[in-house]
Simulated assay, not measured.
Amino acid sequence: MPKHSQHRRRGKYALDADDIEWLESTPETSADDGPPEGDRWSTWDQSTPTERGPQPYPSWLVTELAAVDTELGILKTGKEADVHLISRGVPGTDRVCLLAAKRYRSSEHRLFHRDAGYLEGRTTRESRMNRAMANRTAFGKQVIAGQWAVAEFGALCRLRKLGLPVPYPVQIVGTEILQEFVGTSDGYAAPRLANVSEDLDELWKQLVEAMVTLAREGLAHGDLSAYNLLVHEGGLVIIDLPQIVDVIAHPAGRSFLDRDARNVATWFAAKGVTAADPDALSALLHREAGMS
């Protein structure tokens, strides 16, 4: 800017000497936009009502706009997404909660090694996006990441409303899903079923009940195993739901249903649960889904 234009011309909005002196002595504020502590301001206000979990919101959830998010570490890494532990709290108060932030990987990383079967039928209205997804371009991978995040958040909301044991879905922002942290108040995550050896008969009953509820809704987890089931306070919690399948509409819906049944029943049977039978569970799920 030319030197002579740095000061406003004389008139209604002209700056006098005191104004100029005050402006020159005031520090820049752009660098002070961050929170007083933590890593970022709470992203709660960045989500629309439809991008937040079912109401009423849990009492433990911090929704105050003065809250800040603090990164505490990585809970889980994967080919499609990483899960981070976040503390969301209002500075100077006892209002704080722990959240699990699932962040789908950006386009420069390998994305969704099994996505072809799950994404069948998931198209957009724009042919450009569909071509990009089919060709796995950088833009197409970003579209896929967004679709998977939206699909998982929608599944969490739907299953939560059905009363199924899933983490409470707090909000979605872009390709980041914030959800209830399943674990202790001091940040220790609940163990996976694969690492549990007690009360397996009871856990098997809980799992069958949950799978039957899913089947009655015409759904299958799509990738169910002992590694995406958590055990918390004596109960099972189902996680990792981006690939949830409509078994009626999907051309391979029956095979997804059978695979879920085979994976979990085989695991429980190997652990000595006599009631766990893959064929019997598949037949039960087929009947409940109206596919027998």
Score class of each variant (00 low, 15 high):
39 D>P: 02
200 L>E: 07
81 A>P: 01
249 A>Q: 11
117 G>M: 05
277 D>F: 10
32 D>L: 15
2 P>W: 02
246 D>N: 14
287 R>D: 15
156 L>N: 06
105 R>N: 09
217 E>K: 10
39 D>E: 07
191 P>F: 06
247 V>R: 01
232 H>Y: 13
201 D>I: 06
145 A>T: 08
162 L>K: 12
161 K>G: 05
252 A>P: 00
19 D>S: 03
134 A>K: 15
163 G>L: 11
83 V>T: 08
235 G>W: 00
213 T>W: 03
171 Q>G: 08
6 Q>H: 00
280 A>C: 06
286 H>W: 12
5 S>M: 11
47 S>A: 15
30 S>F: 13
48 T>C: 05
98 L>G: 07
212 V>K: 02
248 I>C: 07
47 S>H: 08
192 R>D: 04
128 R>Q: 10
154 G>F: 14
185 S>T: 07
199 D>T: 01
36 P>Q: 03
133 M>C: 05
53 G>Q: 02
157 C>I: 07
41 W>R: 03
17 A>H: 09
257 L>R: 01
78 G>A: 11
194 A>M: 15
180 E>F: 10
212 V>W: 05
62 V>N: 04
205 K>W: 09
177 I>G: 05
173 V>N: 12
14 A>I: 03
48 T>R: 12
209 E>D: 15
72 L>A: 01
202 E>G: 11
118 Y>D: 04
284 L>S: 12
217 E>N: 13
218 G>C: 13
129 M>Y: 10
105 R>M: 00
59 S>I: 11
177 I>Y: 00
72 L>T: 00
63 T>M: 13
224 L>H: 09
282 S>R: 14
93 T>P: 03
151 A>R: 14
157 C>F: 09
199 D>F: 00
198 E>F: 04
225 S>G: 14
15 L>N: 08
275 A>Q: 13
240 D>T: 11
146 G>P: 07
202 E>P: 03
206 Q>G: 04
148 W>H: 08
279 D>R: 09
60 W>C: 04
65 L>Y: 07
130 N>M: 11
95 R>C: 06
231 V>W: 10
132 A>S: 14
121 G>Y: 05
21 E>H: 00
261 A>E: 08
156 L>R: 06
219 L>T: 05
204 W>S: 06
207 L>E: 06
127 S>H: 04
228 N>L: 12
45 D>S: 13
234 G>D: 07
164 L>E: 04
230 L>W: 12
200 L>K: 13
86 I>Q: 00
219 L>S: 02
81 A>K: 01
192 R>I: 08
99 L>A: 03
